[in-house]
């Protein structure tokens, strides 16, 4: 029940944030395999993570192809794509995961306070592979956009 409610909150949050802040229409994929992200191209994947503590604790992560990350950055910051630099992309991804996590938890449990750490860029393999800690639950959401797919993963740790 908790996992179902969390996933619903994640999906609502992702949808609202990508559409409102990044002007990015999306569809949710039935596929929950993050290793398919960026499968069809050779381009690098970027990943960002944020630790959280509250009634549930764990890590909120996202993995995204570099080109889609640049598009999101251009949309958020109002830049042309050739003006987008690595610092813009990283700042955008940090803000994306921060907003997505915050909105997810406020939708999931508006009575409780969740403490969010400062987001950090991580190696994409940390999202695609097994978590180093022992998760007690894992929720994966894969999002399709016109340009490419990106994925979100929430791992709950006791």
């Amino acid at each position: 029940m908790e996992t179902k409610a969390l996933k619903k909150a994640m999906m609502t949050s992702i949808s609202e944030i990508l559409e409102t802040m990044f002007f990015m229409p999306l569809e949710f994929s039935e596929n929950e395999d993050l290793t398919t992200i960026g499968d069809s191209s050779e381009e690098p994947l970027l990943a960002v993570a944020l630790k959280f503590e509250g009634p549930i604790s764990g890590q909120f992560m996202a993995v995204i192809p570099n080109s889609l990350a640049k598009t999101l950055s251009a949309n958020l910051l109002g830049l042309e794509s050739d003006q987008v630099e690595r610092a813009h992309v990283e700042a955008t991804l940090r803000e994306m995961i921060n907003m997505t996590a915050g909105k997810t938890f406020s939708l999931y449990d508006s009575q409780s306070v969740f403490k969010l750490d400062i987001p950090e860029m991580i190696d994409a393999q940390m999202v695609l592979g097994d978590a180093s800690s022992q998760p007690t639950a894992e929720i994966v959401v894969v999002v399709d956009t016109e340009e490419a797919s990106l994925g979100f993963k929430l791992i709950k740790v006791d």
Binding site: N98, K103, F105, S106, S110, Q111, S112, F114, L116
Partner: peptide, 9 residues
């Protein structure tokens, strides 16, 4: 300006 929307916060 916040991402945290809990009533307590």
């Amino acid at each position: 300006v916040t991402t945290e929307g809990s009533e307590k916060q």
